[in-house]
Nucleic acid binder design. Sequence first.
DNA 1: GTCTATATTCTGATAGAC
DNA 2: GTCTATCAGAATATAGAC
Lengths: 216, 216
Amino acid sequence: MNRTIPRGPYKPGKIRQNSEQCMLDAATQAFSRYGFSGTSMQNIADTAGVPKANVHYYFKNKMGVYTAVLGNILDLWDTVLNDITVTDNPATALCRYIDAKIDFSRTHPQESRVFAKEMLSGAPHLQEFLQDKYEAWLASRLRIFQSWIDAGKMDPIDPAHLLFMIWGSTQHYADFEPQVKQSLGTDTLHQEHFDAAAKTVKQVILKGCGLTPPAP
Amino acid sequence: MNRTIPRGPYKPGKIRQNSEQCMLDAATQAFSRYGFSGTSMQNIADTAGVPKANVHYYFKNKMGVYTAVLGNILDLWDTVLNDITVTDNPATALCRYIDAKIDFSRTHPQESRVFAKEMLSGAPHLQEFLQDKYEAWLASRLRIFQSWIDAGKMDPIDPAHLLFMIWGSTQHYADFEPQVKQSLGTDTLHQEHFDAAAKTVKQVILKGCGLTPPAP
DNA sequence: GTCTATATTCTGATAGAC
DNA sequence: GTCTATCAGAATATAGAC
């Protein structure tokens, strides 16, 4: 089962191999559902449509596949976190961040779940990430929040815990999908559900911080 | 490694066996860390301090251990959810619920993680729970929220999404512990951290719903 | 590079002595 | 009820033909 590459013609070296991305997708799907130990190399190979030995050829061993998947997810995260334009307006910035996080839950639920399972297991393979990129990103956010508070632009709220609230609220729609589906009485989550989610989260967070919604 | 039973003298039948609770604890710990497939019967037996065959004798097979652990967790959940006294005052009710959820994250982090991993895997063993007890509990909550909104006691906010916000925000402290530890710059989460968490969540949620904190 | 066949290790489960 | 020894099956990993 080969993958139709959506962007331009085949460039050897740029996109290393068609098969490789195909295996990564298959592995992400499997890991998100069955976890690391619950996923077999055979399962990955079958889903990707290649013989099992090829997976070993490309990724050395199972841990190699897993770290490749995790690295891919961290790259995605990096894009989402950095694509948000810095603004002086707290309300606008928070809205953009909430929208981006909810959209990530909608467009990348499997990646979100692999990340969450890694966290639940104590994040043994994320130590480097947490102490490096995340640490720096967090510090800059905390500074910005504090400057807003000091300037009287928003209520005095512990910035770290506020971030956890936004993180947890938005991630919930990917990670606890069965509960969300059951609660909303739907078999599949559609755009409208995510829109309603974003609207509620923004409404509560903004007002809870003493902010008024930005003019659209 | 036997367990000292904390409540009263040994009563055969009431507390079925000392060993059994010991194995359940060991299994909960293992499942929360390594997931279902990543946990071996040998690991459970070793942690509980009994020979592997005994685990099979008590729980039939591995799935038997897992369902027993899950059932135990659902009982805990039931207690937490139902222990909250019904009140006419939205602010008081929300505060009690948030405090209870945060306290659950502090006192039962492993149980919270097993539950979360099951959700992340699509909740195949929670269908009955979701369609039965949870469904009923949710419906009653939604009705209460709606009655508060209709009575003008709180802002018009989608009750389901508001519940997800509270759920996600509070659960985060158990499920994403590595991220929280790193962010707060601590090696272990103490009571004070959970107090600060509860304070922030209550502050934002209450004000975000147009409520004023209840008098202590 | 791709695939088949095989070796090796691990784990769930059970048989049977005590 | 408790434990040791063992079986049967599955999964990782590799060797080697093409």
